[in-house]
Design a protein around this nucleic acid. Structure first.
Lengths: 178, 178
DNA sequence: ATTTGCATGTAATCTGTTACATGATTCA
DNA sequence: TGAATCATGTAACAGATTACATGCAAAT
């Protein structure tokens, strides 16, 4: 499906960047729904260059450090928009080790089961806290044609997801203690 | 992490099964949080046999059809419990192509963006409907030491997730139309 | 000076999907 | 008798992670 390709094209379509900056974007904003390590990003950038979707120019930082700043070509923009406009058939529910363990939780002792639920609850409460802090960077809802609009929507979605998971785990604890 | 290994051990720990029946289990119950194709299951069964986690006996069905019925060994049970009891550090948020598209949705026309949201909403409403139908197989909440307990919890979690996503997409449509 | 972060790449391995391949059984 | 399903496997490929590998720049 080449999703990494389109994630990169989409980001470069917002602003020209180096591979390192792309990596930072994946770590920060996009980490709630897509991500890639540098070992996957650099080869993909090379491939996209060969395919004519992006170009780069080399900038020298300091004395001799070479940076490759990548920019989307017209062909790359076309390619990206075509992907964005195409229908997305719903994927299978994502794999989730925690849910798998909860599925088998009847095999645990009462204490171990309780620990499993409460440990998960704590971790998700922590993530929720961070997301809410993140949200404070928006002082108002961005316009639907600004780059921040999608950012706002997915952050809202992430917060709703974590709230739901915390609720669910709360119910699991409740039902487990009957 | 060998998660497939433990998913298989966990299922076989409930009842002995053939590879084909395991595949069916992945397609039905577990599909909300784990799954595997037969092309991944059969090699993994071979590997687990070599590792001494499971054994099999061959049954002849009809005239000549050979079925391998797999059973967990004591070692396999120990291995499974050790995995189940170990702490699970929270994974990265799962990758999600739809959310990636929504992240970039400001690049779409008003109509295309509306279509994206409404198409997703429809698909998730449909999945929610199926999940609720599934839930009706439980006439009461299973005891926390029965095999059905985990089944009930993850189904509840899946329903809550789909409800949350439908709510989120509703809000996306709302904010997009301002 | 040393540590942290910037910056770019490759190699080996693991996980998972799609396609290839075969054959028996059951039901209409 | 033909189609759907049961049943088992392998091969090629795609996607992603971990580890290997190098070197510059900035801050302490």
């Amino acid at each position: 499906m080449r999703t990494l390709k389109y994630a990169i094209l989409g980001l470069l379509n917002q602003t020209s960047m180096t591979g390192y900056e792309l990596m930072k974007q994946f770590e920060s904003t996009l980490s709630e729904f897509w991500y890639a390590k540098h070992s996957q990003i650099y080869p993909e950038l090379k491939k996209l260059t060969d395919e004519g979707c992006i170009t780069f120019d080399i900038q020298i930082s300091g004395v001799s450090l070479e940076k490759k700043r990548y920019t989307v070509t017209e062909e790359g923009k076309k390619d990206f928009l075509k992907w964005l406009e195409a229908d997305t058939e719903m994927e299978a529910t994502p794999k989730d080790v925690s849910r798998l363990k909860i599925f088998f939780s009847s095999k645990l002792s009462d204490e171990a089961r309780k620990h499993l639920f409460e440990d998960q609850l704590l971790q998700h409460q922590c993530r929720l806290h961070h997301l809410i802090q993140n949200q404070s960077k928006f002082d108002k809802i961005p316009a639907n044609d600004s780059d921040d609009f999608g950012d706002y929507l997915v952050l809202m979605g992430a917060i709703m997801r974590e709230e739901m998971i915390c609720q669910w785990l709360g119910k699991c604890i409740e039902l487990s203690e009957r």
